[in-house]
């Protein structure tokens, strides 16, 4: 297995009595789109802030590609942390010139970066005149300077309209296709589900779970059935065999949990009918990632 792009080891961050991060460890595999998922205040930004040296950890360590981090490491990472931070009195172009100068690069790729986020036509406008969405897009353009192999996006779709959200999502997927590793913090499951290959879930500073999205956020098909003869229905359903994982009674309905794509409504209906039960309710429900997320974070 290749060396993780970022390896975080027992990171602890305390603010007085409050523990913002509690022994958080995870690895970000090379080439992954890594979602850092958690409700507000769960420690996502704190984790990324420490990794970017703007916060000092109380204890613990982290490495980029197996090496101890330096300022030069950050020059080759495109990072958007928390909010777009730019000089209000300067234009987009001038702001990116500063970022490029810090990264030790020329001005050559500024135009292309602005083009990618559809800001080229406003490049000479002052940052203070930008809308929230434009500010966010400028921050993403800044991340793209120098074509880094690792990108860190903290809530990248914050403040964007639905069209903007879709654009950023497409951009992230395109960057991932180019082989870049992307770390994305988000409280939006939907976002993580749509673009991430890996996920780490944080809650109140603790790591709940981490791994490939398919392993962590297993999706299930739920078949909900009901009949007048509710007592016999249960025994009949149990005879359905090993197709489903769980049977749960919810009010007057029964829920059968199948792994994703495995539920066959016709088969369930036929089985019950063959055993003398006529269903008066038969419905396929997709278990939402959201309920899975709550399940994970509420334990």
């Amino acid at each position: 297995m290749s060396v993780p792009v970022l390896s975080i080891n027992k990171l602890i961050k305390k603010y007085g009595n409050i523990t913002a991060l509690d022994e958080v460890s995870f690895d970000v595999p090379s080439g992954s789109v890594f979602g850092l998922l958690g409700p507000n205040g769960s420690g996502k930004t704190t984790t990324l802030g420490i990794v970017m040296d703007i916060l000092k950890q109380t204890s613990g360590s982290f490495q980029f590609s197996g090496k101890m981090p330096t300022a030069d490491t950050r020059k080759n990472i495109g990072t958007l942390l928390e909010t777009p931070n730019f000089y209000h009195y300067l234009s987009a172009q001038k702001n990116l010139e500063i970022a490029a100068a810090i990264k030790g690069r020329g001005k050559n790729d500024i135009g292309a970066a602005l083009e990618k986020v559809n800001l080229a036509h406003r490049k000479d406008s002052k940052f203070s005149t930008y809308s929230l969405g434009m500010k966010q897009r400028l921050a993403i353009a800044s991340c793209l300077l120098g074509n880094p192999d690792l990108l860190v996006f903290d809530e990248p779709t914050n403040g964007l309209d639905p069209e903007g959200i879709a654009e950023i999502r497409t951009l992230i997927l395109r960057l991932a296709k180019e082989g870049k590793t992307i770390i994305m913090a988000s409280h939006l499951l939907d976002e993580v589900e749509k673009v991430c290959t890996h996920v780490a879930i944080l809650k109140k500073g603790k790591l709940i779970t981490a791994g490939a999205v398919d392993d962590v956020l297993v999706n299930e098909d739920i078949v909900e059935v009901s009949a007048y003869d509710i007592t016999n229905l249960e025994s009949v359903l149990l005879q359905l065999g090993g197709h489903f994982s769980t049977l749960k009674q919810v009010g007057n309905n029964f829920q059968l949990f199948f792994s994703m794509g495995k539920a066959n409504l016709a088969e369930v209906n036929q089985h019950c009918f063959n055993h003398g039960i006529v269903l008066n309710h038969l419905q396929l429900k997709k278990k939402s990632l959201e309920s899975k997320f709550f399940e994970l974070t509420n334990n």
Binding site: M52, D53, I54, T70, A71, D72, R74, K75, N76, T79, L81, T83, N85, F86, Y87, H88, I98, A99, I102, K103, G104, S142
Partner: peptide, 14 residues
């Protein structure tokens, strides 16, 4: 402007 953070993020050392 929080640009002191951004400068560090972009690769300045503190």
């Amino acid at each position: 402007f929080k640009t002191h953070r951004q400068n560090i993020i972009d690769g300045s050392s503190r």
